[in-house]
């Protein structure tokens, strides 16, 4: 009798959990066509920007946004497979390809910030203050200084590869060039521990600065611009895409209201904004 009681107890506990799970509002899926899948980069989530503006969008439009924060590469792969409705990404070359191939439509400029070249304060390679990112990368390669790359096809990784290419250096397989395969925040942690150089978006760096021993050694070069576009996934290619929701979201991102939020977001916490609003501008005019 005693044994049965114990077993009943355990089963009862589990059953109770299930019942509660079944009746909880969190479990109830919202009306289907109300779902919007937004595939975006980790930087927009890690900086807290999306957590701030998504609720405003949801309240305004009654859509339910499922934000999937992955690297820009993965986000665009989701768009290409029709597994996302809207993309908010920062990998311009790959974005253009996506639009040319017809998977994405209505690509619009939202905002930018910039990348910075980081390294230990001692700066063994001596790149501090260099204006040209390409020259700085050349020097890092020439001195064989330890460099951490994300190697995850993220927007940051794509930018880094573009700079290596411009510098005429192929870092793959070099002893001083190490892949973390991790997100930006974690890669910064690894670079700090190993006293290595790395490339980071300014927003993530600013939000983690207090725990790192990394300094900005080179910044301001035009090639270091980090530009975010919003793209709607083409419903002609993928009929299941929630096109009205995607359009509503893209319109919202370039609306006056959101652009104003972007302009001041992060000022209270980091002393400077994390992003600069760019809706309606041309890419060529940025950073001037």
């Amino acid at each position: 009798m005693k044994m049965r009681k114990g077993l009943t107890w355990a089963v009862g506990l589990m059953a109770a959990l299930i019942l509660m799970a079944g009746f909880s509002p969190a479990q109830a899926a919202p009306v289907k066509q109300k779902n919007l899948i937004l595939a975006t980069t980790t930087s927009t989530q890690d900086t807290g920007l999306l957590d701030y503006i998504i609720p405003i969008f949801e309240k305004k439009t009654k859509y339910f946004v499922k934000t999937i924060a992955v690297g820009s590469g993965a986000a665009m792969a989701m768009g290409q497979k029709g597994e996302a409705d809207a993309l908010l990404v920062h990998s311009p070359a790959a974005e253009k390809k996506l639009v040319e191939e017809g998977y994405g439509v209505n690509r619009r400029l939202v905002m930018h910030n910039d990348f910075v070249i980081l390294g230990p304060a001692s700066d063994p390679a001596g790149i501090k203050g260099m204006k040209s990112a390409t020259e700085a990368f050349k020097k890092l390669a020439a001195t064989g200084s330890l460099f951490m790359t994300r190697a995850d096809k993220s927007g940051t990784h794509a930018k880094e590869m573009a700079i290596w290419k411009a510098a005429g250096v192929n870092p793959e397989g070099q002893k001083w060039y190490q892949q973390t395969g991790l997100g930006m925040g974690q890669t910064l942690g690894v670079a700090a521990e190993k006293k290595a150089y790395t490339l980071s978006d300014r927003g993530t760096y600013l939000s983690m600065k207090k725990n790192l021993g990394l300094d900005i050694l080179s910044e301001g070069d035009a090639v270091l611009l980090n530009i975010y576009h919003v793209i709607e996934v083409n419903p002609a290619k993928w009929p299941k895409v929630n096109a009205p929701a995607a359009k509503a979201f893209a319109d919202f991102m370039v609306s006056k209201q959101v652009q104003k939020i972007i302009k001041t977001f992060g000022v209270d916490k980091y002393g400077s904004p994390l992003f600069f609003p760019d809706a309606g501008k041309k890419v060529e005019d940025l950073g001037k």
Binding site: T42, Q45, D46, T47, G48, A69, G183, M184, G185, Q186, L188, T204, S207, M208, K210, N211
Partner: peptide, 9 residues
């Protein structure tokens, strides 16, 4: 995982 990524250790 997310808070680690944000640096909020």
């Amino acid at each position: 995982v997310m808070e680690t990524g944000k640096g909020n250790f």
